[in-house]
Design a binder for these strands. Structure first.
Length: 573
DNA sequence: GCCGTTTTCGGCCCGACTGTTTTCAGTCG
């Protein structure tokens, strides 16, 4: 079993925790944490990069030493330095660091003075009142720890963006009703449009902070006030989401928006760049000495750093600052660029609406075309179409198109990729269609090699056009399939096949990193909703968010093409 | 341990809030 990037990242993160507990050089600790983040978010496996002979020290925050350690982990599955440190400092202490309010210093004290090694030990100590007796701790700290241990046990996973949006909209509306408030905007990963959010960072501009904080405390949905100050408060909502609210004066709006939008690593990179230019950058502005030289707008902050405004979706420290500096930022695709939807269902299988209603709804959304992609027969739970029913649907769509004005319905199918890589309908049926969307629905847990070969084989079929929801993942519910995505993308590029970015908020499959990989390899992306009703068509915007996070431009997305250009693009070379 | 428009050494982002202190350490984002 090859070592995954997340395993390597876990080794480094744990080592960082233990070293910090031991009081090691904080910058060395940070180096391991940075390396963990780099490895964790890298779209390619370290093992594969090593196989290809890449020097891992070329990766950001990885030097010669850590490149060597990664190699050792890949080869042996162990990190000798971690084993050595674990002899002195129990590995479980790293788990305690994950509890809110506990950092290295406190974990160390709890271990040294009370012998606390595990979350369970901590719970017992808090219940017995032992913690409050420690110098530097007190009753309030003990109570806070007790609460956090419980919260940790029932900890919510990151919330899907679409769900967080409902929570955020209501909260923004409430806060905007406070006297003296000018702007209320949700920043953080929400504004960067990450597929899930861990908390909400709400930025408010107002002349005085206190009334805003009172307004927040009065909000019905607040379950617990975690902390509360004049300019910053943290609360936990009944929905399980933490909310940070920060109030800044209007003159700092842009700087604060940059700061609270993040990401953290993007901010650090910006600040370093500011320092080199002799500026101090914080949430109140850009300063030359005591003098504020920018900060009213985001653009003014970036401009002072010699950069154009960088769209929030790109602010992940994945090369966007360098691209901005060189004037090479992508011109990201927008919802307005989209001319049609290439994955929709109808009543014929598991959809809710008729083809003609779907077509009207697409027209209302300003589309030029919409395809109907009902399931094939293998998906029996959806009453999938066999050859006869699909051919009947094709004729029905022809008749419908003759009547429709201003919208064209494309004849398609979501044909199953069977376990042996063949398609669930014969070629002589598929050739009657405008194009196909092909998908894996069963046998999702094959080995990486088998799953990859299954899809490669399917792509060999000349009627294969678009690979739908390529990894099969469901956010927070089902992990992606084991796949050699890069190999599949290379194959798609050679064969003129397209990858879908499924816009359903539960899927968002491909993810951002994979979109960027597809773009680099030159594979076209279809951003498609997989709508099972007319309402489903509106999830397109989540797909566009993800596409933008993947650096995709209009030219990378096939359903920005006119109908004629799309039809040409769908022809396999 | 990483890194370089002050480059191979000497830096490494910066401010708010809390609790336990009497001026600040710890933690967080």
């Amino acid at each position: 079993m090859p070592v995954h990037n997340s395993d390597i990242a876990d080794f480094f993160a744990t080592l960082a925790d233990l070293l910090e507990i031991e009081g090691a050089n904080p910058f060395r600790v940070r180096a391991y944490r940075n390396a963990a983040a780099t490895v964790r978010s890298h779209p390619r496996r370290m093992a594969d990069l090593i196989d290809e002979g890449m020097d891992l020290a070329e990766l950001p925050d990885i030097g010669d030493d850590l490149a060597g350690k990664i190699q050792t982990i890949v080869e042996t599955g162990r990190l000798p330095l971690l084993d050595e440190v674990a002899q002195r400092t129990p590995v479980e202490l790293s788990d305690l660091m994950a509890i809110e309010g506990l950092g290295a210093k406190r974990v160390r004290r709890l271990y040294d003075e009370l012998g606390i090694r595990s979350v369970e030990d901590l719970r017992r100590a808090a219940d017995s009142g032992a913690i409050r007796e420690l110098p530097g701790f007190g009753p309030k700290t003990e109570e806070a720890i007790r609460k956090r241990v419980e919260a940790h046990a029932g900890r919510e996973r990151r919330m899907k963006l679409a769900d967080a949006e409902d929570v955020a909209d209501a909260l923004v509306h409430w806060l905007a009703g406070c006297d003296g408030v000018r702007e209320v905007v949700v920043a953080g990963s929400f504004r960067r449009r990450r597929e899930t959010v861990g908390d909400l960072d709400v930025l408010v501009t107002a002349s005085k902070g206190a009334p805003v904080m009172q307004r927040l405390a009065d909000y019905d949905e607040v379950d617990e006030i975690v902390s509360s100050g004049k300019t910053r408060s943290t609360v936990r909502l009944h929905a399980g989401l933490s909310v940070d609210v920060r109030v800044v004066p209007q003159v700092s709006y842009g700087a604060a928006l940059v700061y609270f939008t993040g990401s953290k690593s993007h901010n650090i990179a910006l600040r370093k760049r500011g320092m080199r230019k002799g500026y101090k950058v914080n949430e109140y502005g850009v300063f030359k000495g005591e003098r504020r030289v920018a900060g009213q707008t985001e653009a003014s902050v970036y401009a002072k750093l010699g950069l154009p405004l960088i769209p929030p979706e790109l602010r992940e420290d994945r090369g966007e600052i360098d691209a901005a500096r060189r004037g090479r930022l992508p011109k990201l695709v927008t919802l307005e660029d989209i001319r049609g939807d290439l994955h929709c269902h109808s009543k014929a299988t598991d959809g809710r609406d008729t083809i003609s209603r779907m077509a009207e709804a697409a027209k209302e959304r300003g589309y030029e075309y919409l395809s109907i992609n009902d399931h094939s027969k293998h998906v029996s739970v959806a009453h999938g179409l066999d050859r006869k029913r699909l051919l009947a649907q094709v004729r029905a769509i022809d008749r419908l198109n003759a009547k429709l004005d201003g919208i064209v319905v494309l004849k398609s199918v979501e044909v199953d990729i069977l376990e042996d890589g063949s398609l669930d309908l014969p070629d002589d049926v598929l050739k009657e269609l405008d194009f196909t969307v092909c998908a894996v629905h069963y046998q999702l847990r094959l080995t990486r090699r088998k799953q990859t070969e299954r899809i490669l084989r399917a792509m060999d079929n000349p009627y294969f056009n678009i690979l739908a929801h390529p990894t099969g993942r469901l956010i927070n519910r089902r992990d992606p399939c084991e796949l050699d995505l890069e190999r599949l993308l290379e194959a798609a590029h050679e064969r003129g096949c397209i990858f879908e970015l499924n816009a359903h908020p539960d899927r968002l499959d491909l993810n951002d990193e994979a979109c960027r990989l597809a773009k680099d390899i030159g594979v076209g992306i279809a951003v498609a909703t997989d709508a099972h009703s007319v309402d489903g068509l509106d999830t397109m915007r989540y797909g566009i968010d993800q596409a933008r996070r993947g650096w995709l431009e209009k030219k990378d997305v096939v359903n920005t093409l006119s109908l004629a250009a799309l039809q040409k693009r769908l022809r396999r070379r």
